[in-house]
Structure formats: structure tokens, C-alpha cells
Design a protein around this nucleic acid. Structure first.
Length: 599
DNA sequence: GGTCCCCGCGCG
DNA sequence: AAAGCGCGCGGGGACC
């Protein structure tokens, strides 16, 4: 650790002389990269009162903090003057603020993100600027942060109103781009970017575009649904409270009511030991001999669902939109496995068993919605990795005949060519396969499928006999993980696409199979987005949902887009089983059409 | 009054 | 031998 050179200068650009000094610094020194950072009023750049407060640039010799409101023109001058590489820590954040509030688009092909770089090279470790600086750069650097925190507390300042000329704030701000450059130096010691870094940087650029273009919602529909559900939920909760004194929103109150008033027995416990009032527990209540228990339980289940839909979706849509446009936050590397997550609102969790919520998501003006889903991608990746000849053959047959993989497995395992999709064994086959993907035991599979242990075991044994590669692969993975734990200090798996390392918890090595599959599938999907971007479709992206991309397109382009989606969402090269995708739509009214019962 | 965890449940 | 994977969100409730 070399640390920060004590002769490094930090400046607040709040007079002409300093502005000139900064410009001289920019033009007179030779350098490979400039660090860039911003200070903002808060986290959400789309908030009505959002304000860019400071733009900071720096290298190994100096850091400059430029108050945006007073000296924004100077800031833009230097942003435009530098045509070399930029490095930032958490590019996704600053890129948005600069684009929205400074009207300046960072050139993506010259922008680097040390947050992503760090994630690639030190998977599973905290990756905040502060943590990395303390650990790898210079622990003295965080002293300023402490002083600033205390001052803000003492003066009652927040990020939105701390004066830009307050010394510690200016100093702390000017330091950050300098740190960004030091982290760049540290991570770039071998001057190579991992393959996964390129994929993630492209994904970042594509998803940033999606956040910016936003998602159109039908505001009137949301308001109607919210009001309707609101009335039902409030009325119902009040009735339960008045009539029986039970708060059905509280698991404690609800459990007490079942036990004390309805004299119902609650078998299941939560991990914390409390009586469980989850869906399974309540579904058991539906089997009660006591009609009043059954009626009350139906009532509770209905209210819960309505409450969830109202609060998590319609309320949030209405809270977050501006003129019918939602700008969600897409975190491209949120899950340890590299899956993306979407918040504000949580667009990956919209109810799919009916279309009520997705009806709120509509095409852009004059357009139609289409979608493309990867077809059982995790199972296909599993089949590829397990290298089980029979399983691979079964997939090929299912693809050739256009039948469903689980049905085809039934036909194969039971030697019944006429095995039907409606055969009750198909459900057990599906449960077994998903159980294996997730590393579950037979007891859990049986519980999920709602069948006796013995029935489940029979199917599981049959599948293991027919496709021995599945268990063989699982054993292999555990063996590799144990070896790595012993030799390399921590157990990790590698993704199939880029070889990115994903750490596995030491006491849960069995989850390595799922991690490999899930993280590889995530990279396959991201690669497909990059391919679609190259094919010119990314401006039409609306939202990604793990293995599915939603697009909004002109009605005249439907056939062309179908073709583009089919081509670029499918991968065959290098896979024992083709990774195929379907295309659905066009839907002229809403995303919900895809989920309508008769569809 | 703010913060954190538990619990339950939505999605892939 | 046995182990369901990954997320986000909201209400309740404990705690400070």
C-alpha cells in the first residue's frame, strides 16, 4: 500500500483564480486517466427536488470540487475538454446524475467503473469506496469522512443542504476522484480487464438506457385499482377488528385468534419458533372440519393478497411515476450470482397468476409490447453441465417434437411413448428437477409438491437411475469446492460464460450447483442483451426479468423484431442443449395481455 | 420517531 | 446423509 502522496492538493473551485488553476492542471499535465465523482442532494436523480451539488475531478496530484450551481459552466468546460479515459466508483450512479442534471453524457467507451472491476476481482467482499480505500489504498483517507459526519450531525445538515464551501465537505468531495484513480491503479496492476468486466460494463450501459427511457403506466387504471382494493382491505380489516378483536395483518394476533378463539391447532412453526401463519399453514386451515375456520381463512387469504397488490404495486406505481413514466432502479450486479435486481418499484415481482398488475404496464405512445423468454434456461444449463447423454437426448427430442421437456422425461423414464402432459407424475418430475437445481432433499421436494415422501422418493430414484449424470455432476462440484477451500482459502464456482468467480458459503457447499447454474444463466441473458443491443434493439427495451426481455416497438416492426429476438436470444454454439427462447406478442394494450387466462 | 429484524409472499 | 436457489417489499414489533 503506497498511500496517497502527501503533496496531493485539494481545491474548492469557488473563484476565478482556482478555476484557472484547474484548467492549467488539466491542460499542462500528462495523464492516462481522470477520476470523476459527484455529490448530490440524495439518491434518486428523478426526485422532484433532486439537485446536483458538486462535480469533482482529480488524478494522482490534485482533486477539484466544483459546486454545480455556481460553477456548473466551468465544470462542463472541463468535462468536455478531457477526451481520455474516465474512472468512477459506481459509474451507474454518477452517469445518471450528470446526464439528467448537467445534461452531460459520459462517453461510455471511455468510462470505467472500479466498483464492477472490484466485484470481478474480489467477489463477495464489500466494495464501497471507503472499504476499498481503508483496505488497499490509505486508511488515513477516511478520517475526513468522520469529521464530516460529526459536523453534519451537529449542524443538522443533510446532503441536500450542506454548504458547498464548508471546508470538510469540499475536502471530502475533492478527495473522492483522487481515490478513484488510486483504486484504478491498484486494480489495474496487471493492465488486464477480466472478460466478465466487459460484459458487465455493456450491461450497465444498456440498463442505464432502460432506466432513463422509463416504463409507461396507465395512471387512471392504477388509481381505480388502488381505490377499489383499498376500500375492500380497509373494510375487511376493520370488520375483523370490530367483530373479533383480531388484527389480521399481525401474525401474532392472527395466531392467537386461531388458537384461543377458533380452537384451531397450528402445526407449523416459523424459523423463529412462532406459530406459522404462512400460506401453507393457512391452506391447512382450509381442510378443517369447522366451517367457521374455513370461512375465516378464505377471508384472510383474500385480504392478504389484495393488500399486497394494492400496497406493493399500485401504490408504488403511483408514488414513483412522473407523467405516467416510471424510472426504476436497475442494479445489474445485485445478486451474488450476478442476477439483476429492480427496485422502485420491484418490477420483477409483479403477480403473474393473473393480469391485474401487469395491465398497468402499457406500450409507449403508438407502440406495442413484445417479449422474449429464455426457455427453461437453468434446466438446460444443468443438462449441459451434467453431461448426461440420456438427458441431453431427451431435450433434443422435446425440441424436435415441440413437446415439453418434463413430459418427454416422463415418456423416457417410464418407457411410455404416450406419456401425457396431464399425467400426475409430470408434476413430480418437475418438482424433482427443480429440487435438484436448487440442491433440495427429497423431504423438501415432497413438501413443495404436496405429496407423500415415498411417492416423491420413487420418482426421484427413477430419475436418478435414468440420468445418472445429474448426481455425478453434483458430487463433482462439491469435490471441487472442497479442494478450493483447502488450497485457495475460499470455495467458489466459475460461471460458464466468462469464468467469473462466485464465492460459495463454506457450510453450504451443496448450493454450488445452483450458483453455477444461476450465475451462468444470468450471464447468458446479459450476453443476449448485448447481442440485441448490437442488432439495434436496445432503444426499445422496457424491462428485463431475469431471463426475459420486454420491448416496446412500432406496430410496423413486429415481424422484423420477432426475427431479431429469435436470433439473438438463442445460443447453440458450445452448448450440448440449445438455449432457446420464445417470442410473444404483439400486445397492443398492456403487458398484462400476456397473462390473461385464455392466452 | 427512527432503525432493524422477523415474517410472509411476490417473481424467476 | 442432508441441505431448495436468488432477490424486494410491507407490516408488525422490538429496541433505542
Amino acid at each position: 500500500m503506497k498511500g496517497i502522496n502527501p503533496s496531493t492538493e485539494f481545491h474548492l473551485v469557488n473563484d476565478i483564480e482556482t478555476a484557472w488553476a484547474m484548467k492549467r492542471w488539466l491542460s499542462e499535465s500528462r495523464r492516462d486517466v481522470i477520476g470523476l465523482d459527484t455529490e448530490t442532494s440524495g439518491l434518486n436523480p428523478y426526485a422532484p427536488d433532486a439537485e446536483l451539488r458538486m462535480v469533482q475531478i482529480g488524478d494522482r496530484t490534485a482533486g477539484w470540487a466544483i459546486p454545480w450551481k455556481e460553477w456548473g459552466g466551468v465544470a462542463l468546460e472541463v468535462l468536455n475538454a478531457w477526451d481520455g479515459e474516465w474512472t468512477l466508483h459506481n459509474l451507474a450512479f454518477d452517469e445518471k446524475w450528470l446526464r439528467i442534471h448537467a445534461g452531460w453524457q459520459i462517453p461510455w467507451h471511455k468510462a470505467h467503473d472500479t466498483l464492477i472491476m472490484y466485484n470481478m476481482l474480489y467477489p463477495g467482499q464489500p466494495a464501497s469506496l471507503k472499504f476499498i480505500t481503508d483496505k488497499h489504498i490509505d486508511p488515513r483517507a477516511s478520517v475526513g469522512q468522520k469529521i464530516l459526519d460529526e459536523a453534519m450531525k451537529k449542524e443538522g445538515w443533510g446532503w441536500h443542504n450542506i454548504p458547498t464551501d464548508f471546508g470538510p465537505y469540499a475536502m471530502y468531495s475533492a478527495l473522492d476522484p483522487v481515490l478513484a484513480v488510486h483504486i484504478w491503479d491498484f486494480l489495474r496492476a496487471d493492465k488486464k480487464f477480466p472478460k466478465s468486466y466487459d460484459l458487465e460494463m455493456s450491461t450497465l450501459r444498456i440498463c442505464s438506457g432502460m432506466e432513463d427511457r422509463g416504463i409507461n403506466i396507465d395512471v387512471d387504471y392504477c388509481e381505480q385499482q388502488r381505490d377499489k382494493l383499498n376500500e375492500y382491505v380497509e373494510k375487511s380489516k376493520k370488520w375483523a377488528k370490530d367483530e373479533y378483536g383480531v388484527n389480521i395483518g399481525s401474525t401474532q394476533s392472527l395466531a392467537a385468534f386461531y388458537q384461543n378463539t377458533l380452537n384451531a391447532h397450528i402445526e407449523k412453526r416459523t424459523p423463529g419458533g412462532a406459530p406459522s401463519m404462512d400460506k401453507e399453514s393457512l391452506d391447512n386451515m382450509l381442510l378443517s372440519d369447522d366451517p367457521s375456520v374455513v370461512e375465516f381463512t378464505k377471508f384472510v387469504l383474500n385480504v392478504r393478497k389484495a393488500d399486497k397488490i394494492r400496497g406493493s404495486y399500485f401504490e408504488n406505481f403511483l408514488r414513483d411515476h412522473t407523467n405516467g413514466l416510471l424510472h426504476p432502479s436497475i442494479k445489474t450486479m445485485r445478486a451474488v450470482t450476478g442476477r439483476m435486481s429492480i427496485t422502485d418499484p420491484a418490477l420483477q415481482t409483479l403477480h403473474s397468476n393473473d393480469s391485474i398488475v401487469r395491465n398497468a404496464v402499457v406500450p409507449r405512445e403508438g407502440q406495442v409490447i413484445m417479449s422474449s423468454d429464455l426457455d427453461q434456461v437453468e434446466f438446460r444449463v444443468f443438462a449441459h453441465l451434467s453431461d448426461d447423454e440420456a438427458l441431453i437426448e431427451t431435450f433434443k427430442k422435446a425440441d424436435d417434437t415441440g413437446s415439453d421437456a418434463f413430459t418427454e422425461i416422463g415418456a423416457q423414464v417410464y418407457q411410455e411413448p404416450n406419456f401425457q402432459k396431464s399425467d400426475p407424475r409430470r408434476k413430480l418430475i418437475k418438482s424433482t428437477i427443480y429440487g435438484k437445481l436448487y440442491g433440495s432433499g427429497i423431504a423438501k421436494m415432497a413438501q413443495t409438491a404436496g405429496v407423500p415422501f415415498e411417492d416423491m422418493k420413487k420418482v426421484s430414484d427413477d430419475l436418478n437411475a435414468a440420468y445418472p449424470g445429474m448426481n455425478r455432476y453434483a458430487k463433482e462440484v462439491e469435490q471441487i469446492l472442497s479442494n478450493r477451500m483447502a488450497v485457495e482459502k475460499y470455495p467458489y464456482i466459475e460461471t460458464v460464460v466468462t469464468g467469473r468467480r462466485v464465492p460459495v458459503e463454506e457450510d453450504r457447499l451443496y448450493s454450488g450447483v445452483n450458483y453455477t447454474i444461476q450465475s451462468s444463466a444470468a450471464e447468458i441473458f446479459k450476453s443476449n442483451l448485448v447481442k440485441l443491443d448490437a442488432a439495434g434493439l436496445s432503444d426499445n427495451f422496457v424491462v428485463p426479468v431475469h431471463d426475459e426481455i420486454i420491448v416496446s416497438i412500432d406496430p410496423g416492426d413486429v415481424e422484423e423484431v420477432k426475427q431479431i429476438l429469435r436470433e439473438n436470444m438463442t445460443t447453440s454454439e458450445g452448448w450440448a442443449v440449445p438455449l432457446s427462447a420464445d417470442v410473444e406478442g404483439p400486445f397492443a394494450r398492456s403487458w398484462g395481455e400476456k397473462y390473461e387466462k385464455n392466452h
